[in-house]
């Protein structure tokens, strides 16, 4: 039996919670008297972690009636879930379309040098501009009368285009690298073993670049996710970005931190349970360091 080694990663969450606790406590203790606070926290400035958890409970278990009975019950169509669904939906659509196009463009730039040269300045431009900087212009473009009906819905083209820009270019670059690092000797070996035409793509080029494709997906997903939340703060309906804005506008500070926690949590779940696992599959023989 192999002994399970202790990982210091387990200390990080308690450490963050401790600092949070001390900071919130200090803020309450040093804050302006007369504001809403008790001994441990000032809920308007920096709520304690348990208050954030409780605000999550309040969202998931809304009041049954407004008569003041105080009875709460779980509801599937609560605001919190709705915001999460909408954000995830936008991520899947924006990231998914970016991935499909990045596979095509990345493969094309990898295989054809002229196209690679042509794409390089474009990729460099888009990668050096923070994706959120495109948001205002996208909102203007996609709120023109022609797109009005689409923009009004949760399927916001302005937000989707920002996610697309955020995810597409890092994926193109990584997939292109994947094609470029394919060993000439692998291709030669396949040819003398009788591989012809499409067989070379199916059995050599594709598997040889798969580690880079999955690394590209991981990068693209996280870039897109970050851009998504930022873009949602620019005036769209629903989404976790909107949840945070609502918390700010209505003075419900716990909602801001709840939104932040959910953003990190979803990103972590995708990393740990999807992308890390796919990557681990290739880590044995691949040396991708993206």
């Amino acid at each position: 039996m192999a002994k399970r080694r202790f990982s210091y990663a387990w200390l990080s969450i308690p450490a963050v919670l401790l600092v949070w606790f001390l900071l919130a406590w200090f803020l309450a203790w040093s804050g302006e008297w007369g504001e809403l606070f008790d001994r441990f926290e000032n809920q308007l400035r920096l709520p304690q972690s348990w208050t954030v958890v409780y605000s999550g409970y309040e969202e998931l278990f809304p009041l049954v009636d407004l008569s003041g009975s105080g009875i709460r019950a779980f509801q599937w169509d609560n605001e919190l879930f709705k915001n999460m669904y909408v954000s995830l939906f936008r991520e899947v659509v924006g990231f998914g379309s970016a991935l499909i196009l990045a596979l095509i463009v990345g493969a094309a730039t990898g295989f054809f040098k002229p196209f690679r040269q042509f794409m390089y300045p474009i990729t460099a431009l888009f990668q050096s501009v923070p994706p959120i900087a495109w948001a205002p212009i996208m909102v203007l473009v996609f709120t023109s009368p022609f797109y009005q009906s689409l923009t009004a819905s949760v399927f916001s083209l302005a937000v989707l285009s920002v996610i697309f820009i955020a995810g597409f270019f890092p994926m193109v670059v990584t997939i292109q690298e994947g094609v470029l690092q394919i060993q000439g000797s692998d291709v030669k070996a396949a040819r003398v073993l009788g591989a012809k035409g499409w067989q070379l793509y199916r059995y050599v080029y594709f598997p040889a670049s798969l580690p880079f494709i999955t690394t590209g997906m991981r990068l693209g997903f996280s870039y897109a996710w970050r851009a998504l939340v930022a873009a949602e703060m620019l005036g769209v309906e629903f989404g976790i970005g909107q949840l945070i804005l609502t918390g700010d506008a209505t003075g419900k500070t716990p909602l801001i931190l709840l939104g932040v926690t959910i953003i990190g949590g979803i990103s972590f779940l995708f990393e740990a349970f999807i992308f890390k696992r796919i990557e681990a599959h290739y880590s044995e023989w691949s040396h991708t360091n993206a």
Partner: peptide, 14 residues
């Protein structure tokens, strides 16, 4: 035709 390379050109993913 068969060809054996200088350093093994085995496909690392297989």
């Amino acid at each position: 035709l068969g060809y054996v390379f200088q350093t093994s050109a085995l496909f690392p993913w297989l």
